[in-house]
Structures are given as C-alpha cells and as structure tokens.
C-alpha cells in the first residue's frame, strides 16, 4: 500500500491547476486590474470578433464571394446546412480528425516520453529527431507524405513492390485516406505531446517513487498511482493542444487528398474553403463557419461547466 501522506500530496498537486484563487479573501483592487486584459480584448475584438460578426451577416446572403453586391436570403443557408449530407460527413470527419489524432498522440506521446525518460545513450538525439517534424510547416510535411504515398513512384509503393507486393493506391479510399490523414497529423505532432509529457515526468519528485517502493509498490502500480495522477496538468495541456490542432486541420488534408474521393475526406475547414472559392457560395460558407463556431462554443461551455462542478466538489 502506498502511504496515505503521499496520496494526499499527489492529489493536492494534481488539483492545483484547477484551484480557484478568486476567493473573497484576496481581491485585488477592483476594476483596475481588468485593464490588463484590454490589449488582448482589443486585438480579439478587431481581428476575430469583427470578422466573425461580419461572417454572421454574410451567412444570411447569397454572396458569391467576390462580386460587389448580394441579396438577403434569410435563413436559407442554415436550412440548407441542416439537410446537407455532405456537411454532416465533413463534420463527422472533423471530429474523427480531432479525437483520433488526440487519442493516438497521447498514447504514443506518453509511450515515447516514458521510454525516453530514463537515462540512455543518444537520448538527446532521439528526442530531437522525434520532435523534428513539429518544426516544419504542415503544408510542407503533408506534401512530402503525399510524395511518399503516391501510387506511381511513391517511396512506400517502391518498398511494397521490392518486397514482391502489388502497388497500392493508398489515398483512394475514404476510410484509408481518413486514417492516413490522422496518422500523418499524429506523426508530425507527436513530438509535442512527448515533450510535454517528458516535462511532466521530470517534475515528479523521485522521493515519491522511493517512498512508494519502500512500501512495496512497483511497476504498474507506481505508474498508476503516482505517474498518472501527477501528470494531470501535462495531460490537460497536451490534450487541449491536440484537440485544437485536430479541429483546425487544414493544410494536411489539402495536400494529401484535396478532400477526395468526392467530398468524403474534407474537414469543415477545407469544405468551407471549397464552398467559398470553388462553388462560389460565400454566404453558405459563412453559415458553416458560424455553425462550427456555435457548436464549439457550446462544447466549451459544457466542458467548462463540468470543470467548475469538479472545482466545487474538490
């Protein structure tokens, strides 16, 4: 059994991230302190909120995206959205990209971090190599992977053929393409999760492990009872980052499949681009953007409420 004192310490530090600090005990001088977020608010109001509100306005029109002038069409674009099977597909894809790469990156990232946490020769080099792709623009990384995966003259098919297999059109089925997009995004950004977990692991004082070992704990139970709880802040950071990255996935899809076959591997972002520029339906594209933003806002609200509840219970 692990000593209950350690247990408490573990729990306390894990909760630290979520601890509300705005008790009535220490209120900084009211009003004045809020001034500090004005620069940020000003920027966001100008370069995010204003264009977004503008987009809401456009979503009620039939604008083609470049001509001067357009007509109001009321809620037509939103009605169309509800009955658009393609939009449903791309919405589901977006979730698959976000959740799929988030889960994979946590598993792989934590695995790599654990493997690289212990001292070994070449550790720094291995870390650098695994982190390397994070430093490259996704549009470039995606293009290189496209070259690797293409049917004729692709590096992967060269290997397959050399081993006596048959050339494969890797990016020609929907399921295969979605999986490859998730995999490429994961491989590129797994270094990020790895570094975050490495940092988390190194912040765990070794005395906890030593004390637990004295109590006879080992291997799996050490991992479960000390490592995992103490990594909570790292989990939070890494998961949030990966979710954002996955939801916004754009460049990789563009260069790997262009959204095909058909529309079947588009994300909401790439589909907005196609609707805007190719189909010349800017009004409809704006409605998609608004809908996506609304859904994400609601998800954030629910998540936040859940976290608040936790805080109250703690």
């Amino acid at each position: 059994m692990v000593d209950s004192g350690i247990d408490t310490a573990v729990r306390r530090s894990a909760d630290a991230t979520y601890r509300p600090t705005a008790g009535p005990r220490h209120r900084p001088r009211q009003g004045l302190v809020n001034v500090l977020y004005l620069p940020a608010l000003a920027l966001l109001a100008m370069f995010t909120a204003y264009p977004l509100v503008n987009g809401v306005g456009l979503s009620f029109t039939d604008w083609d995206g470049y001509s001067p002038g357009h007509h109001l069409v009321g809620l037509e674009n939103y009605q169309r959205l509800l009955s658009d099977g393609t939009f449903r597909t791309v919405f589901v894809n977006t979730l698959v990209y976000a959740l799929g790469s988030t889960v994979l990156q946590q598993v792989l990232g934590l695995g790599l971090a654990l493997a690289l946490d212990r001292p070994m020769r070449g550790r720094a080099l291995l870390r650098a190599i695994i982190y390397l792709p994070v430093l490259v623009s996704p549009v470039i990384m995606g293009t290189i992977y496209y070259l690797l995966l293409q049917y004729d003259n692709g590096a992967l098919n060269d290997i397959v053929v050399a081993l006596g297999g048959e050339q494969q059109a890797w990016l020609s089925t929907t399921t295969g393409s979605v999986a490859i997009i998730v995999a490429v995004n994961t491989i590129q950004f797994v270094g990020l999760s790895m570094i975050i977990y490495l940092a988390g692991l190194q912040s765990i004082p070794t005395m906890y492990y030593e004390a637990a070992r004295l109590d006879g704990a080992s291997g799996w139970s050490l991992f479960r009872r000390i490592t995992v709880p103490l990594l909570q802040p790292a989990f939070a950071t890494s998961i949030v980052l990966n979710l954002i990255g996955g939801m916004k996935l754009f460049d990789v899809i563009k260069v790997l499949t262009g959204g095909g076959p058909g529309y079947s591997t588009n994300s909401v972002s790439t589909f907005i681009g196609l609707t805007y520029f190719n189909a010349q339906s800017a009004g409809y594209a704006a409605a998609m953007g608004v809908a996506l933003f609304a859904v994400i806002m609601i998800m954030t609200l629910v998540l936040n409420a859940a976290l608040n509840k936790r805080r109250l219970e703690a």
């Binding site: 954002i244 916004k248 953007g289 933003f293 994400i296 609200l301």
Partner: peptide, 17 residues
Amino acid sequence: LLMLGSIMVPPLSVLVP
C-alpha cells in the same frame, strides 16, 4: 470563455472580412 471559443474559429471563415 469567448477567448477560448475563438481558438477554434476556422481562419478561412473570417478570411475575407
């Protein structure tokens, strides 16, 4: 909340404005 929500605004949907 608004700040967090705005993280996920797809850039293309605000591009033209």
